[in-house]
Nucleic acid binder design. Structure first.
Length: 549
RNA sequence: GGCCCUGUGGUCAAGCGGUUAAGACGGAGCCCUCUCAAGGCUCAAUCCCGGGUUCGAUUCCCGGCAGGGUCACCA
């Protein structure tokens, strides 16, 4: 068979350049030894979730801790699943979490020598190499219809054989020259398949950067290289792109492990040297007692936008992911509390081998800690940023008064450097937490544990003598005075000695005041809260609580 | 079902032939205390099972089992 002629008939493009030329167009990168070139290669099929960030972070760290390059490639070969705005969303989300690319799609960089970075725009390159493989007899056209393929699959699974297009099942593999041209003349659509030379019974070990030695067999599937629309499949595009974009380390989810044999054969058929691979375990979610891989479709609440909306501190999300990526990170951080997290020596080889269950408690804890280390001013800026995007109109009005909010935050966070409160876990909750400082969002539900007379007594007496000029101890002395007058023990120790002699302790009396002022039995220092509110509003709240019982 | 990956407390996990089997989150308790938060201290809780190898296995080997992944003209 005249393969040259066949290739020209199958790939009639007349604007292709020679395959060798591409080696010159995309030369080896000039990088230090050990520098890794990694990439994030999402398909633009919607939002990205925590699992993608996890992977992106691994890529970013692997590149940037070795002086390498991290680039963005868009795998948009499946037009059916394309979602508008997905690329922008990916970039925006990653940027929010501090993940930056050095080159690639939509990245303005002088380094963009290896593009285009959208696979749809790379059709010529793929077709060039598909043509080459056909000429070499390593690829062939397949005219099977979807129905025929389904029938083959059905027959195979009935006989409990491996499904797929391989060996004797690959009907189009041995089509005669006449048959092929007949089909072409009839205008039948076709795909280009790899003519696999592998033997599934041959087994060897492959070294993965995370999993270590893994056992694989040769590939024997005649997988599709070019779909009937002339666009490549993932496998084919992967081999060509990662070769010509000079990727050194492919970090991808372990769901790709099973197609590794295909990729090994592809690189070999194309005569390319393989990059190294790191197959990451997937982030899991607990689902009815079992673990399950995080899914874009099933877990919309794990979209990165969800974390933005909930207001988790972005660095906290990254740090949480870092603890999963390299568990040594946590200890390192404990030892270097002031160091930049990027100074941690990330190692791909130290990545965990088994899928971690996503732990919201842990994320919350880290977020709380990160926020607690902010200065009140920084925290204000963070919360304000959140209100601008996700808050209510009322929130935005509240946050217009910077001085007032900062004063509140000094209380809520602890003004000095060492005694920090950790009340704010994320922006959304933090903004709600301080709602009671604003009259238009203060909507208390009074639930006093004492009778109306006692409540009114405490509130009324305190309203009489409250003076915002009092310092903490003077303020508390007045609380004690009021408490004693209403039958509470002025000292907790006294109350403990003889509980029956009192109706409660000073703590219980303070609770009445606290509920009246804040609407809650729990709050930070009440004395400070009242001084922030000021005399008028504090007393007004005491009075209105009196009226409500 | 075939093939592949994984298997240490509730969760994330150190460990890499001999350890009282780290640490963090969560839980319980105590202290502190006007409540809460924070902080300090303490406690409970783990090597999937069965065979080997070995003086000795969480660690090495084999076999089960369990969980996950994958078997497309999707990535």
């Amino acid at each position: 068979m005249d393969l040259k002629k066949l290739a020209a008939a199958l790939i009639p493009d007349d604007d292709l350049i020679s395959p060798e030329k591409y080696e010159e167009i995309y030369p080896a990168r000039l990088l230090e030894k050990g520098a890794e070139v990694t990439r994030l290669a999402p398909s633009p099929t919607g939002f990205i979730h925590l699992g993608n960030l996890y992977s992106a972070l691994a890529d970013e760290r692997a590149a940037h801790t070795t002086g390498g390059v991290f680039y963005l490639r868009i795998e948009d070969t499946d037009l059916k699943r394309k979602v508008d705005g997905a690329v922008e969303s990916v970039i925006r989300s990653l940027k929010y979490f501090g993940i930056k690319f050095d080159e690639g799609a939509e990245i303005s960089s002088k380094l963009n020598y290896y593009g285009p970075y959208y696979q749809r725009q790379r059709a010529k390159i793929y077709r060039t190499f598909a043509k080459k493989l056909i000429e070499e007899g390593k690829a062939y056209p397949c005219f099977c219809t979807e129905e025929e393929l389904a029938a083959i699959r059905a027959a195979q699974s009935e006989k409990k054989l491996t499904t797929g297009y391989y060996g004797a099942f690959a009907k189009c593999r041995n089509l005669t020259e006449e048959q092929i041209y007949e089909n072409l003349a009839a205008g039948k659509p076709y795909v280009i398949r790899l003519r696999s030379s592998g033997d599934i019974s041959r087994r060897f070990t492959f070294r993965d950067e995370i999993k270590g030695e893994i056992s694989v067999t040769e590939n024997d599937q005649d997988i599709v290289l070019l779909k009937s629309d002339g666009i490549p499949t993932y496998h084919f595009a992967h081999a060509i792109d990662d070769h010509f974009m000079r990727t050194t380390l492919v970090i991808r989810g372990e769901e790709w492990l099973s197609s590794l044999p295909v990729h090994i054969e592809l690189f070999s058929a194309l005569g390319f040297r393989m990059p190294r691979y790191a197959h990451t375990c997937s982030l899991m979610k607990s689902d009815g007692g079992n673990k399950r891989k995080l899914s874009k479709r099933k877990d919309p609440e794990l979209s990165l936008d969800y974390y933005r909306r909930a207001g988790y501190y972005p660095v906290a999300v990254v740090k949480y992911l870092m603890t999963l990526l390299n568990s040594g990170f946590e200890e390192w951080e404990l030892k270097n509390p002031l160091a930049d997290w990027r100074d941690f020596k990330f190692k791909v080889s130290k990545m965990g081998k088994s899928g971690a269950l996503f732990d919201l408690d842990k994320l919350s804890d880290i977020s709380r800690t990160e926020i607690s280390m902010l200065s009140p001013g920084e925290c204000y800026a963070f919360l304000k940023g959140w209100t601008e995007e996700f808050g209510t109109e009322k929130d935005r009005q509240h946050f217009a008064s910077e001085a007032y909010i900062v004063k509140i935050l000094e209380l809520v966070m602890g003004a000095d450097g060492k005694k920090r409160r950790k009340d704010i876990e994320r922006a959304e909750q933090g903004v709600r937490l301080i709602d009671y400082f604003f009259d238009d969002s203060f909507s208390p539900v009074y639930s006093f544990r004492y009778g109306a007379d006692t409540v009114k007594g405490v509130l009324g007496r305190f309203a009489e003598i409250y003076d915002p000029a009092d310092d903490n101890s003077a303020w508390f002395a007045k609380v004690k005075e009021v408490a004693a007058a209403e039958g509470f023990a002025a000292e907790t120790s006294e109350y403990r000695k003889d509980p029956s002699a009192y109706i409660g302790s000073v703590a219980d009396a303070a609770e009445i005041l606290r509920i009246a002022v804040t609407g809650s039995a729990n709050s930070p220092d009440l004395c400070t809260i009242m001084s922030i509110l000021g005399k008028e509003r504090s007393i007004a709240r005491l009075k209105s609580a009196m009226g409500a019982v």
